[in-house]
């Protein structure tokens, strides 16, 4: 019997975008408010996982053709290099620098070296969560 996943497909198309945009909000809300790379990454992973579940794994693989183990490495590298740049200024490893800027439309924003560090964490978490779940899911034989 072939089931029709019309409900699931329709809802996934809408909901996954809501989750994705909320995860991006969480990612940028980090540092001084609840949120950050880890939570944002987990949220993104759930959105992508929803896609994998409701559509076929193979189809989504074509749409998202990344190798997750490489993404883990890239994320770790970004995080380490962010920590390393403080060595250039003669400060201890992982020293954080931040500065406030005023931008025309957005008003005052904060730029900090914690952001690229968080981006690294974000990539690692997304990739680890998806990699470990997909490894089990694909091994159907």
């Amino acid at each position: 019997m072939r089931t029709n996943f019309l409900m699931l497909h329709t809802i996934t198309r809408i909901v996954s975008f809501i989750i994705l945009s909320f995860s991006i909000y969480l990612f940028f809300a980090g540092h001084n408010n609840p949120g950050g790379g880890f939570i944002g990454g987990l949220m993104t992973a759930t959105a992508l996982l929803l896609l994998y579940i409701s559509f076929d794994i193979k189809k989504i693989k074509k749409a998202i053709p990344f190798d997750y183990s490489t993404i883990i490495a890239i994320g770790l590298l970004i995080a380490i290099v962010t920590g390393l740049n403080s060595l250039l200024f003669g400060d201890p490893f992982l020293t954080q620098y931040f500065e406030y800027y005023t931008v025309p439309v957005l008003g005052e924003i904060e730029l900090t070296t914690a952001l690229p560090f968080d981006l690294g964490i974000y990539l690692v978490v997304v990739a680890v969560a998806l990699l470990s779940i997909l490894t089990i899911a694909e091994d159907d034989s």
């Binding site: 183990s69 490489t70 883990i72 490495a73 770790l76 590298l77 380490i80 390393l84 060595l87 201890p92 490893f93």
Partner: peptide
């Protein structure tokens, strides 16, 4: 303050990450 004691922790970590890129 001396970043010297960091290196035995940092170098293996960095190298481990770099080696993932050469997995083949």
């Amino acid at each position: 303050m001396n970043n010297l004691v960091l290196l035995p922790v940092l170098i293996p970590f960095l190298m481990g990450v770099i080696l993932i890129f050469f997995k083949k």
